[in-house]
Design a protein around this nucleic acid. Structure first.
Lengths: 222, 222
DNA sequence: CGCCTGTTTGACGACAGTCAAATTAGGTGG
DNA sequence: CCACCTAATTTGACTGTCGTCAAACAGGCG
């Protein structure tokens, strides 16, 4: 949170739980510009506000005592985060890209029918996405998981630059933590997909080009 | 725990996707009494209604083409199901026990502030539960998964008959499909926990007795 | 009492994880 | 602009957990 006007101040906040001291809570529908990899909230934080992603992307994750991490949601524009659990947040939330969020008080839901409709719609598609995710984590092989994720990113990206090239907003480790795999398995799987011609290397190493959506969809089992 | 008084009407509906024809859509807050293992909705069904579980329990699941199944939610009293995806349901829903559900039209949300508050609260804890579930599926070992589930059932049951005995509303196959394991692994793990004294056999085979919540919680990593 | 289904147990194999090292990318300062 | 340094990615070899296939066993219901 809470770096207000984006850029400048870059408190180092390298992922795992370096606590940020927040700026004082903002007003209804307060806009929040955040740089890449900034914390939005931490588990245990007061959950009196939730967030709507306007641009960019955020990830919501949980940590176990021993350091295992699971990214439980990746939220893209139009999605909601911070509406889970009781009166404190149940997970951590961090930007993956420079993002604009809009924060609301829970109580605002009662006031605005428009907001409520947007939130309900957001939650509905979010729950469906979590169903997809559960199927992936519980029942898909490593290759199916990777293909499923690439496909999802492709479909989101295809709105923007539709030449089949996808810039991952995620590191290998993050992909692994989202897919319930290790980073080595993710590497091996992606390389293998390249070798087999389903993907092609992009200009930058973090980019990838989809060769055949059909074959990818088939390999993803969905 | 759990067992209601199994009602009368028993339309045969043996699990996987034998389509049920529903009673004609009911009014706002229509009560729905269902026996054990009755379909509530199927994927693709018109999602003009959602359901609040009043008693009993339901499971929400997805099937892949090749028959792999993942149970994505188990919903207990107070929870909501059927609010996911777009204008058709994204998953199947079936009772695990004789249950009483209450169905509402989506539009009802706009009318009743009381309903809205209950639904938002329900969705929030449901999303947190799905976060738990994702962590389990993505990052926990077979033993941790089984312990986590037993612990959750224990905590729900402990409100009712608090002697540590849990009657599973789930078959081994269903436990496996919820935990992302095979039924053999579930069996082996439960037997192992018994051998190691974390659990004790109940009177019936489908029951289990928790020996030490502490040890169980430790083995569950949560 | 006997069938049918669900559960338990066993033997074996494979997919993904672990540990470790080599290679590459990206960022910084000269 | 280039050299260097660190962090990220890739590759390799080996291991272990869990899945698969198969058979024995138990329990519930007619």
């Amino acid at each position: 949170m809470f770096e207000q006007a984006a850029p400048s101040i870059e408190r180092k906040n390298s992922s795992l739980h370096a606590r940020a001291q927040f700026a004082p809570a903002a007003r209804v529908g307060n806009e929040l510009k955040l740089a890449k990899r900034r914390a939005v909230f931490y588990p245990g934080d007061d959950a009196d506000r939730f967030y709507e992603v306007e641009s960019g992307a955020v990830m919501v994750y949980r940590l176990l005592e021993d350091g295992r991490r699971q990214i439980v949601e990746i939220v893209f524009p139009g999605g909601i985060c911070g509406l889970a659990g009781g009166d404190v947040h149940d997970a951590a939330c961090e930007t993956l890209l420079p993002s604009v969020l809009r924060s609301y008080k829970i109580a605002d839901l009662a006031c605005s029918g428009l907001l409520r409709a947007r939130v309900v719609a957001g939650l509905k598609s979010q729950i469906a996405a979590m169903h997809d995710h559960a199927v992936m984590l519980g029942r898909k092989t490593a290759e199916e998981r990777v293909c499923t994720l690439i496909l999802r990113l492709y479909e989101i990206a295809t709105g923007n630059a539709a030449d089949g090239t996808i810039a991952f907003p995620l590191s290998r480790t993050e992909i692994a933590d989202y897919l319930g795999l290790t980073l080595e398995t993710v590497c091996r799987t992606i390389c293998d997909l390249r070798r087999r011609g389903l993907l092609e290397a992009g200009v930058k190493k973090s980019e990838v080009r989809v060769q055949s959506v059909e074959r990818l969809r088939h390999a993803a089992s969905c």
